[in-house]
Amino acid sequence: MQKIVLCAFALLALAAAAPQDQEPAYILKQESDVNPEGYNFEFETSDGTSRQEQGTLKQITEDQQAITVQGSYKYNAPDGLTYVVTYVADEHGYQPQEHIEQPGQ
């Protein structure tokens, strides 16, 4: 019984700590295309979040193929800054690059 009460208080604390004034984000744009040679997709939401990505089939060796991926995502953080990450993922691993946009850019 004590564990149930403790869990209930923990859930209540989590609910109280969640931001109450945030509006839900809505999808403003969503597109995708998938084919045997690769794929691409992009989306944008009403809170300023966006992402786009392309994947292309690449011949690594005579017997091995892999998908090379490049893309980016952007979001508005609680600190008021907009974070943008561009990346490539291929046979050399995941290679992100971050850029921070100042307000008004």
Score class of each variant (00 low, 15 high):
A18N: 10
Q30T: 08
Q22T: 15
A17L: 06
A66N: 01
L28H: 08
T61Y: 00
V84P: 10
E62N: 06
E42G: 15
E44V: 04
K74R: 15
G80E: 05
D63G: 07
D90H: 01
Q105I: 15
Q102G: 12
L12S: 14
Q65I: 01
A77I: 04
V88M: 04
T86Y: 06
K29A: 13
L12C: 12
Q22G: 13
I4N: 11
D21Q: 08
L28T: 11
A89S: 09
L57M: 04
E53M: 01
C7G: 13
E31W: 05
A10C: 15
V5I: 09
K29C: 11
P103M: 01
K29Q: 12
G48F: 06
H92I: 11
R51I: 07
Q59W: 03
A89P: 05
T45N: 08
Q97H: 14
Q30D: 08
T56N: 03
V88Y: 02
E44A: 13
T61Q: 00
E62M: 02
A13S: 12
G38Q: 00
V84W: 13
V69K: 06
S50L: 12
Y87L: 03
L28G: 08
G48M: 02
T86N: 10
H99F: 12
Q30E: 10
A13E: 06
I27H: 07
A8N: 05
N40Y: 10
E101T: 08
D79Q: 01
P78Y: 01
E37D: 14
D47W: 03
Q102H: 11
G71K: 01
G104Y: 05
Q2Y: 15
E42A: 11
S46F: 07
L12H: 07
T61G: 02
Y75P: 08
T68Y: 11
A16L: 15
Q70E: 13
K3C: 07
P36Q: 00
A89V: 06
H99A: 09
D21G: 05
P78W: 01
E44H: 08
V88C: 04
I100Y: 06
H92C: 11
L14F: 07
H99G: 10
I100D: 06
T45E: 02
Q97G: 09
Q64M: 06
A66G: 05
E31S: 05
E44F: 07
L12K: 06
Q59R: 13
Q59P: 03
